[in-house]
């Protein structure tokens, strides 16, 4: 299987005048085409930093990152990054605009996504008037709008209520699988990670290194996976790793 991104011996420190923090310690891993990988690890260990490096936002690191052919990355960052003065629709279309890919097809695709996430009827509403969960769904639509082949999701569902969280994770899972997208997700929710992923990478405390990796083989529905007989096995293993 070809890999879409490959990290080789990545090291990273943050510098300031009076201190230096090593955040990433010799991390190497790759993500195969169509694979769904989730990173879990303690808060502040360096998960977002890894996504920043892969997305190309952070170029100040040691090591090599290589990409597969025709890479197109879409990054849903941990912080909210919507334009408050624009409507839902305009926010959802901004990535297409920036990439010069705005046309009837892409607009239809975005409208379809908005409909799916219950945003279509309020698409002209200003983002500043939305709830946290609605905002997160707009960000998700924007992330998917450019039909990337690698998506980076940093706590993408954290503001959603439980029911929507399950529904949307189910949905994102199917989009990823059906469109043959690869995904790298960061999540604090171990159950969510197990239910959605093909593989889970457990990171240590700062400076992050890879502590364990789990290949997960459950069914192909995150919601049903939670009832799979092997689910608890993975859960207790990863729980132990994190709380060691």
């Amino acid at each position: 299987m070809n890999s879409i991104v490959c990290l080789d011996n990545i090291n990273k420190s943050y510098h300031s005048l009076d201190y230096e923090v090593k955040v990433i310690n010799n991390i190497s891993f790759k993500i195969n085409n169509g694979e769904f990988v989730t990173i879990v690890g303690p808060s502040g260990c360096g998960k977002s930093t890894i996504l920043n490096i892969i997305s190309g936002l952070d170029k100040d690191y040691d090591g090599v990152v290589t990409f597969g052919e025709d890479i197109s990355i879409s990054y849903m960052t941990q912080e909210e990054s919507l334009f408050p003065h624009l409507s839902i629709l305009d926010n959802a279309l901004i990535a297409l605009k920036v990439k010069g890919k705005l046309n009837n097809n892409s607009i239809n695709y975005v409208n379809g996504l908005l409909r799916k996430y219950g945003l279509f009827d309020i698409r002209y509403k200003k983002v500043s008037e939305l709830s946290g969960g609605q905002k997160q769904r707009v960000s998700l639509v924007r992330t998917l709008s450019i039909k990337p082949n690698l998506i980076l999701l940093d706590e993408a569902f954290s503001s959603l209520d439980y029911v929507n969280r399950l529904k949307i994770s189910e949905d994102v899972y199917h989009i990823v699988k059906e469109e043959n997208i690869s995904a790298l997700m960061v999540s604090h929710d171990i159950a969510e990670a197990i239910s959605m992923s093909d593989r889970i990478i457990v990171l240590s405390n700062r400076p992050a290194c890879i502590k364990k990796e789990y290949l997960i083989s459950l069914g192909d529905s995150p919601i049903e996976n939670r009832n799979n007989k092997d689910f608890n096995y993975y859960f207790s293993k990863i729980w132990e790793d994190i709380n060691e």
Binding site: L57, S81, I94, A95, V98, K99
Partner: peptide, 11 residues
């Protein structure tokens, strides 16, 4: 965070 988002789309 908005500037970061735009940069992530290679703006």
């Amino acid at each position: 965070s908005i500037i970061k988002m735009l940069k992530s789309f290679n703006a």
